[in-house]
Design a protein around this nucleic acid. Structure first.
Lengths: 166, 166
DNA sequence: GGCAGATGCGCAATAATCTTTCGTGAATGC
DNA sequence: GCATTCACGAAAGATTATTGCGCATCTGCC
Protein backbone atom coordinates (compact mmCIF):
# COMPACT_ATOMS: atom_id res chain seq x y z
CA UNK A 1 0.00 0.00 0.00
CA UNK A 2 1.31 3.36 -1.02
CA UNK A 3 1.73 5.98 1.66
CA UNK A 4 -0.67 8.80 0.96
CA UNK A 5 0.04 12.39 1.78
CA UNK A 6 -3.00 13.96 3.37
CA UNK A 7 -3.64 17.65 3.62
CA UNK A 8 -6.21 19.34 5.79
CA UNK A 9 -8.89 19.03 3.13
CA UNK A 10 -8.42 15.27 2.94
CA UNK A 11 -8.76 14.98 6.69
CA UNK A 12 -11.88 17.08 6.63
CA UNK A 13 -13.31 14.84 3.94
CA UNK A 14 -12.62 11.77 6.02
CA UNK A 15 -14.15 13.34 9.10
CA UNK A 16 -17.27 14.43 7.23
CA UNK A 17 -17.78 11.08 5.55
CA UNK A 18 -17.22 9.24 8.80
CA UNK A 19 -19.95 11.38 10.37
CA UNK A 20 -22.31 11.10 7.40
CA UNK A 21 -21.40 8.56 4.77
CA UNK A 22 -24.29 9.41 2.49
CA UNK A 23 -23.56 13.09 2.16
CA UNK A 24 -23.75 14.24 -1.45
CA UNK A 25 -20.51 15.20 -3.09
CA UNK A 26 -21.64 18.79 -3.62
CA UNK A 27 -22.50 19.16 0.05
CA UNK A 28 -19.18 17.60 0.99
CA UNK A 29 -17.34 19.92 -1.39
CA UNK A 30 -19.10 22.92 0.12
CA UNK A 31 -18.13 21.87 3.64
CA UNK A 32 -14.46 21.28 2.89
CA UNK A 33 -14.19 24.43 0.80
CA UNK A 34 -13.45 23.23 -2.73
CA UNK A 35 -15.59 22.61 -5.79
CA UNK A 36 -17.26 19.32 -6.57
CA UNK A 37 -14.95 17.78 -9.18
CA UNK A 38 -11.69 17.92 -7.20
CA UNK A 39 -13.62 16.82 -4.13
CA UNK A 40 -14.89 13.73 -5.90
CA UNK A 41 -11.40 13.00 -7.16
CA UNK A 42 -10.07 13.17 -3.63
CA UNK A 43 -12.78 10.85 -2.35
CA UNK A 44 -12.00 8.33 -5.09
CA UNK A 45 -8.33 8.50 -4.24
CA UNK A 46 -9.07 7.93 -0.56
CA UNK A 47 -11.22 4.94 -1.45
CA UNK A 48 -8.62 3.44 -3.75
CA UNK A 49 -5.85 3.96 -1.25
CA UNK A 50 -7.78 1.94 1.31
CA UNK A 51 -8.07 4.82 3.73
CA UNK A 52 -11.80 4.59 3.20
CA UNK A 53 -12.63 0.90 3.41
CA UNK A 54 -16.30 1.30 2.61
CA UNK A 55 -19.59 2.77 3.67
CA UNK A 56 -22.16 1.13 5.90
CA UNK A 57 -25.61 1.88 7.17
CA UNK A 58 -25.71 1.77 10.95
CA UNK A 59 -28.61 -0.59 11.54
CA UNK A 60 -30.30 -0.77 14.93
CA UNK A 61 -29.76 -4.42 15.71
CA UNK A 62 -31.81 -4.36 18.89
CA UNK A 63 -34.87 -3.08 17.05
CA UNK A 64 -34.33 -5.81 14.51
CA UNK A 65 -34.57 -8.49 17.17
CA UNK A 66 -30.99 -8.96 18.29
CA UNK A 67 -31.52 -8.06 21.90
CA UNK A 68 -28.48 -9.72 23.36
CA UNK A 69 -24.92 -8.52 23.04
CA UNK A 70 -22.08 -10.42 24.64
CA UNK A 71 -18.34 -10.11 25.02
CA UNK A 72 -16.55 -13.44 25.15
CA UNK A 73 -12.96 -13.85 26.30
CA UNK A 74 -11.44 -16.92 24.77
CA UNK A 75 -8.30 -18.77 25.81
CA UNK A 76 -6.74 -21.43 23.60
CA UNK A 77 -4.75 -24.53 24.53
CA UNK A 78 -2.11 -23.85 21.93
CA UNK A 79 -1.02 -20.44 20.71
CA UNK A 80 0.85 -21.77 17.72
CA UNK A 81 0.27 -19.60 14.67
CA UNK A 82 -1.60 -22.34 12.85
CA UNK A 83 -3.98 -22.71 15.78
CA UNK A 84 -4.52 -18.99 16.06
CA UNK A 85 -5.44 -18.56 12.42
CA UNK A 86 -7.63 -21.65 12.58
CA UNK A 87 -9.62 -20.11 15.39
CA UNK A 88 -9.86 -16.79 13.58
CA UNK A 89 -11.19 -18.59 10.54
CA UNK A 90 -13.92 -20.17 12.66
CA UNK A 91 -14.91 -16.78 14.00
CA UNK A 92 -15.26 -15.40 10.50
CA UNK A 93 -17.71 -18.18 9.70
CA UNK A 94 -19.91 -17.68 12.78
CA UNK A 95 -22.49 -15.03 11.99
CA UNK A 96 -23.20 -14.30 15.64
CA UNK A 97 -19.57 -13.27 16.12
CA UNK A 98 -19.33 -9.73 14.80
CA UNK A 99 -15.83 -8.92 15.99
CA UNK A 100 -12.80 -10.98 16.86
CA UNK A 101 -9.60 -9.44 18.16
CA UNK A 102 -6.44 -11.16 19.25
CA UNK A 103 -5.15 -9.80 22.54
CA UNK A 104 -2.03 -9.87 24.65
CA UNK A 105 -2.22 -10.96 28.27
CA UNK A 106 -4.10 -13.82 29.90
CA UNK A 107 -6.81 -14.03 27.28
CA UNK A 108 -6.08 -14.88 23.66
CA UNK A 109 -9.15 -13.46 21.92
CA UNK A 110 -12.04 -11.20 22.65
CA UNK A 111 -15.23 -11.69 20.66
CA UNK A 112 -18.18 -9.37 20.38
CA UNK A 113 -21.30 -11.38 19.72
CA UNK A 114 -24.96 -10.64 19.08
CA UNK A 115 -27.94 -12.96 19.41
CA UNK A 116 -31.72 -12.73 19.28
CA UNK A 117 -32.03 -13.89 22.88
CA UNK A 118 -30.10 -15.50 25.68
CA UNK A 119 -30.97 -19.05 24.75
CA UNK A 120 -29.77 -18.51 21.19
CA UNK A 121 -26.47 -17.34 22.57
CA UNK A 122 -26.23 -20.20 25.05
CA UNK A 123 -26.84 -22.56 22.17
CA UNK A 124 -24.02 -20.98 20.22
CA UNK A 125 -21.77 -20.99 23.25
CA UNK A 126 -22.23 -24.61 24.24
CA UNK A 127 -22.81 -25.98 20.77
CA UNK A 128 -20.20 -24.12 18.78
CA UNK A 129 -17.68 -22.09 20.70
CA UNK A 130 -17.03 -24.46 23.61
CA UNK A 131 -16.86 -27.54 21.40
CA UNK A 132 -14.29 -26.01 19.05
CA UNK A 133 -10.99 -27.87 19.22
CA UNK A 134 -8.22 -26.06 21.05
CA UNK A 135 -10.59 -23.77 22.96
CA UNK A 136 -9.46 -23.98 26.56
CA UNK A 137 -11.64 -21.42 28.33
CA UNK A 138 -14.43 -18.98 27.60
CA UNK A 139 -15.62 -16.24 29.91
CA UNK A 140 -18.67 -14.32 28.79
CA UNK A 141 -20.08 -10.99 29.87
CA UNK A 142 -23.50 -9.73 28.92
CA UNK A 143 -23.81 -6.13 27.84
CA UNK A 144 -26.27 -4.49 30.23
CA UNK A 145 -26.40 -1.27 28.29
CA UNK A 146 -24.33 0.64 25.81
CA UNK A 147 -23.03 4.07 26.77
CA UNK A 148 -20.98 4.94 23.71
CA UNK A 149 -20.56 3.24 20.38
CA UNK A 150 -18.68 5.26 17.82
CA UNK A 151 -16.23 3.07 16.02
CA UNK A 152 -13.87 5.12 13.92
CA UNK A 153 -11.26 7.75 14.26
CA UNK A 154 -11.21 10.68 16.71
CA UNK A 155 -10.45 13.38 14.20
CA UNK A 156 -10.11 16.07 16.83
CA UNK A 157 -7.14 14.16 18.25
CA UNK A 158 -5.71 13.74 14.77
CA UNK A 159 -5.89 17.47 14.02
CA UNK A 160 -4.19 18.23 17.32
CA UNK A 161 -1.29 15.98 16.39
CA UNK A 162 -0.94 17.39 12.90
CA UNK A 163 -0.82 20.93 14.22
CA UNK A 164 1.82 19.94 16.72
CA UNK A 165 3.91 18.18 14.08
CA UNK A 166 3.47 20.95 11.52
CA UNK B 1 -40.95 4.37 18.88
CA UNK B 2 -43.55 2.79 16.68
CA UNK B 3 -43.14 -0.88 15.93
CA UNK B 4 -42.48 -1.21 12.23
CA UNK B 5 -43.60 -4.18 10.24
CA UNK B 6 -40.84 -5.25 7.93
CA UNK B 7 -41.32 -7.37 4.88
CA UNK B 8 -38.65 -9.19 2.94
CA UNK B 9 -37.93 -6.16 0.77
CA UNK B 10 -37.25 -4.00 3.82
CA UNK B 11 -34.85 -6.56 5.20
CA UNK B 12 -33.10 -6.76 1.86
CA UNK B 13 -32.79 -2.99 1.83
CA UNK B 14 -31.25 -3.01 5.29
CA UNK B 15 -28.85 -5.77 4.34
CA UNK B 16 -27.78 -4.02 1.16
CA UNK B 17 -27.29 -0.66 2.82
CA UNK B 18 -25.38 -2.24 5.67
CA UNK B 19 -23.07 -3.82 3.12
CA UNK B 20 -22.78 -0.68 0.98
CA UNK B 21 -24.16 2.48 2.47
CA UNK B 22 -23.41 4.62 -0.57
CA UNK B 23 -25.24 2.50 -3.08
CA UNK B 24 -27.43 4.64 -5.32
CA UNK B 25 -31.14 4.33 -4.88
CA UNK B 26 -31.49 3.11 -8.45
CA UNK B 27 -29.03 0.29 -7.84
CA UNK B 28 -30.67 -0.54 -4.53
CA UNK B 29 -34.11 -0.66 -6.13
CA UNK B 30 -32.82 -2.97 -8.83
CA UNK B 31 -31.34 -5.33 -6.25
CA UNK B 32 -34.42 -5.57 -4.07
CA UNK B 33 -36.72 -5.88 -7.06
CA UNK B 34 -38.87 -2.76 -7.01
CA UNK B 35 -38.71 0.58 -8.81
CA UNK B 36 -36.78 3.55 -7.51
CA UNK B 37 -39.55 5.74 -6.00
CA UNK B 38 -41.05 3.17 -3.61
CA UNK B 39 -37.55 2.06 -2.74
CA UNK B 40 -36.58 5.56 -1.72
CA UNK B 41 -39.77 5.88 0.30
CA UNK B 42 -38.94 2.70 2.16
CA UNK B 43 -35.44 3.91 2.92
CA UNK B 44 -36.78 7.19 4.28
CA UNK B 45 -39.24 5.30 6.46
CA UNK B 46 -36.48 3.08 7.79
CA UNK B 47 -34.39 6.14 8.56
CA UNK B 48 -37.23 7.95 10.32
CA UNK B 49 -38.17 4.89 12.33
CA UNK B 50 -34.65 4.72 13.70
CA UNK B 51 -33.95 1.33 12.23
CA UNK B 52 -31.26 3.00 10.18
CA UNK B 53 -29.36 5.24 12.59
CA UNK B 54 -27.07 6.75 10.01
CA UNK B 55 -24.37 6.10 7.47
CA UNK B 56 -20.66 6.14 8.09
CA UNK B 57 -17.51 5.80 6.09
CA UNK B 58 -15.32 3.02 7.46
CA UNK B 59 -12.02 4.83 7.87
CA UNK B 60 -8.80 2.88 8.26
CA UNK B 61 -7.67 4.25 11.60
CA UNK B 62 -4.34 2.43 11.54
CA UNK B 63 -3.36 4.02 8.25
CA UNK B 64 -4.32 7.34 9.72
CA UNK B 65 -1.84 6.94 12.52
CA UNK B 66 -3.86 5.30 15.27
CA UNK B 67 -1.74 2.23 15.56
CA UNK B 68 -2.79 1.13 19.00
CA UNK B 69 -6.09 -0.42 19.93
CA UNK B 70 -6.83 -1.42 23.49
CA UNK B 71 -9.62 -3.03 25.43
CA UNK B 72 -9.91 -1.77 28.99
CA UNK B 73 -11.94 -3.52 31.69
CA UNK B 74 -13.00 -1.06 34.32
CA UNK B 75 -14.30 -1.78 37.80
CA UNK B 76 -15.89 0.95 39.91
CA UNK B 77 -15.96 1.43 43.68
CA UNK B 78 -19.65 2.17 43.72
CA UNK B 79 -22.22 0.80 41.30
CA UNK B 80 -24.92 3.24 42.30
CA UNK B 81 -26.80 4.47 39.27
CA UNK B 82 -25.52 8.02 39.68
CA UNK B 83 -21.95 6.76 39.68
CA UNK B 84 -22.51 4.57 36.66
CA UNK B 85 -23.95 7.38 34.57
CA UNK B 86 -21.22 9.73 35.75
CA UNK B 87 -18.59 7.32 34.46
CA UNK B 88 -20.44 6.85 31.17
CA UNK B 89 -20.52 10.60 30.75
CA UNK B 90 -16.75 10.75 31.18
CA UNK B 91 -16.29 8.10 28.54
CA UNK B 92 -18.37 10.07 26.07
CA UNK B 93 -16.04 13.01 26.54
CA UNK B 94 -12.82 11.09 26.03
CA UNK B 95 -12.07 10.95 22.32
CA UNK B 96 -9.72 7.98 22.66
CA UNK B 97 -12.59 5.91 24.03
CA UNK B 98 -14.61 4.80 21.03
CA UNK B 99 -16.91 2.35 22.77
CA UNK B 100 -18.14 1.95 26.31
CA UNK B 101 -20.38 -0.92 27.35
CA UNK B 102 -21.69 -1.74 30.79
CA UNK B 103 -21.31 -5.41 31.59
CA UNK B 104 -22.54 -7.92 34.09
CA UNK B 105 -20.07 -9.99 36.09
CA UNK B 106 -16.83 -8.99 37.78
CA UNK B 107 -16.11 -6.06 35.54
CA UNK B 108 -18.40 -3.06 35.31
CA UNK B 109 -17.42 -1.60 31.95
CA UNK B 110 -15.47 -2.56 28.89
CA UNK B 111 -13.95 0.22 26.81
CA UNK B 112 -12.55 0.02 23.34
CA UNK B 113 -9.86 2.65 22.91
CA UNK B 114 -7.59 3.82 20.12
CA UNK B 115 -4.38 5.81 20.34
CA UNK B 116 -1.57 6.94 18.04
CA UNK B 117 0.98 4.97 20.01
CA UNK B 118 1.55 3.20 23.27
CA UNK B 119 2.80 6.21 25.15
CA UNK B 120 -0.27 8.21 24.18
CA UNK B 121 -2.41 5.49 25.57
CA UNK B 122 -0.37 5.18 28.74
CA UNK B 123 -0.74 8.90 29.18
CA UNK B 124 -4.50 8.61 28.86
CA UNK B 125 -4.57 5.62 31.17
CA UNK B 126 -2.56 7.10 34.01
CA UNK B 127 -3.58 10.68 33.52
CA UNK B 128 -7.30 10.33 32.85
CA UNK B 129 -8.80 6.93 33.37
CA UNK B 130 -6.98 5.88 36.53
CA UNK B 131 -7.38 9.26 38.19
CA UNK B 132 -11.12 9.37 37.63
CA UNK B 133 -12.99 9.29 40.94
CA UNK B 134 -14.71 6.01 41.72
CA UNK B 135 -12.54 3.99 39.35
CA UNK B 136 -11.35 1.02 41.37
CA UNK B 137 -9.50 -1.12 38.85
CA UNK B 138 -8.50 -1.11 35.22
CA UNK B 139 -7.16 -4.06 33.30
CA UNK B 140 -5.98 -3.38 29.77
CA UNK B 141 -5.33 -5.68 26.85
CA UNK B 142 -3.60 -4.62 23.68
CA UNK B 143 -5.05 -5.78 20.40
CA UNK B 144 -2.34 -7.76 18.63
CA UNK B 145 -4.30 -8.10 15.44
CA UNK B 146 -7.87 -7.97 14.27
CA UNK B 147 -9.42 -11.04 12.73
CA UNK B 148 -12.96 -9.87 12.13
CA UNK B 149 -14.59 -6.49 12.49
CA UNK B 150 -18.09 -6.31 11.08
CA UNK B 151 -20.30 -4.43 13.48
CA UNK B 152 -23.90 -4.77 12.47
CA UNK B 153 -26.58 -7.35 12.02
CA UNK B 154 -26.15 -10.89 10.68
CA UNK B 155 -28.98 -10.78 8.18
CA UNK B 156 -28.60 -14.44 7.26
CA UNK B 157 -29.54 -15.32 10.84
CA UNK B 158 -32.43 -12.88 10.69
CA UNK B 159 -33.84 -14.40 7.51
CA UNK B 160 -33.59 -17.86 9.03
CA UNK B 161 -35.66 -16.78 11.99
CA UNK B 162 -38.27 -15.04 9.86
CA UNK B 163 -38.73 -18.12 7.71
CA UNK B 164 -39.13 -20.27 10.80
CA UNK B 165 -41.68 -17.90 12.30
CA UNK B 166 -43.58 -17.48 9.03
C1' DG C 1 -70.72 -10.44 -2.51
C1' DG C 2 -69.50 -5.77 -2.79
C1' DC C 3 -68.16 -1.25 -1.41
C1' DA C 4 -65.00 2.54 0.79
C1' DG C 5 -60.50 3.45 2.69
C1' DA C 6 -55.79 2.55 3.13
C1' DT C 7 -51.63 1.01 1.31
C1' DG C 8 -48.06 0.57 -1.95
C1' DC C 9 -46.56 0.17 -6.64
C1' DG C 10 -44.84 2.21 -11.07
C1' DC C 11 -44.76 5.81 -14.79
C1' DA C 12 -43.53 10.31 -16.06
C1' DA C 13 -41.51 14.74 -15.33
C1' DT C 14 -38.56 17.83 -13.00
C1' DA C 15 -34.83 19.04 -9.96
C1' DA C 16 -30.53 17.94 -8.24
C1' DT C 17 -26.40 15.57 -8.44
C1' DC C 18 -22.58 13.06 -10.49
C1' DT C 19 -18.93 12.72 -13.64
C1' DT C 20 -16.08 13.85 -17.50
C1' DT C 21 -13.62 17.10 -20.25
C1' DC C 22 -10.82 20.84 -20.68
C1' DG C 23 -8.34 25.17 -19.87
C1' DT C 24 -5.71 27.72 -16.31
C1' DG C 25 -2.52 28.81 -12.67
C1' DA C 26 0.69 27.55 -8.98
C1' DA C 27 4.40 24.73 -7.32
C1' DT C 28 8.43 21.74 -8.33
C1' DG C 29 12.63 20.25 -10.38
C1' DC C 30 16.21 20.51 -13.78
C1' DG D 1 14.26 30.23 -16.90
C1' DC D 2 11.59 26.73 -18.62
C1' DA D 3 9.29 22.27 -18.81
C1' DT D 4 6.74 19.20 -15.99
C1' DT D 5 3.49 18.07 -12.69
C1' DC D 6 -0.33 18.81 -10.07
C1' DA D 7 -4.70 20.32 -8.57
C1' DC D 8 -8.27 23.48 -9.17
C1' DG D 9 -12.73 25.13 -11.17
C1' DA D 10 -16.11 26.09 -15.10
C1' DA D 11 -19.08 23.89 -18.33
C1' DA D 12 -21.77 20.21 -20.20
C1' DG D 13 -23.86 15.81 -20.62
C1' DA D 14 -25.24 11.61 -18.14
C1' DT D 15 -27.11 9.76 -14.17
C1' DT D 16 -29.77 9.93 -10.08
C1' DA D 17 -33.11 11.81 -6.63
C1' DT D 18 -37.55 13.34 -5.84
C1' DT D 19 -42.32 14.64 -6.55
C1' DG D 20 -47.04 14.04 -8.35
C1' DC D 21 -50.38 11.11 -9.87
C1' DG D 22 -53.12 7.14 -11.51
C1' DC D 23 -53.80 2.30 -10.73
C1' DA D 24 -53.96 -2.24 -8.51
C1' DT D 25 -54.28 -4.87 -4.25
C1' DC D 26 -55.66 -5.71 0.29
C1' DT D 27 -58.59 -5.03 4.44
C1' DG D 28 -62.46 -4.27 7.17
C1' DC D 29 -67.20 -3.80 7.17
C1' DC D 30 -71.65 -3.80 5.80
Amino acid sequence: MVAIRLDEIDRKILAELQADGRMTNVELAKRVGISAPPCLRRVRTLEESGLIRGYHADVNSRELGFEVQVFAMVGLESQAEAELTAFEERCREWPLVRECHMLNGEVDFILKCVAPDLSSFQQFLTGKLLTTPNVASVKTSLVIRGAKDEPGVPFDVLEERMNRTA
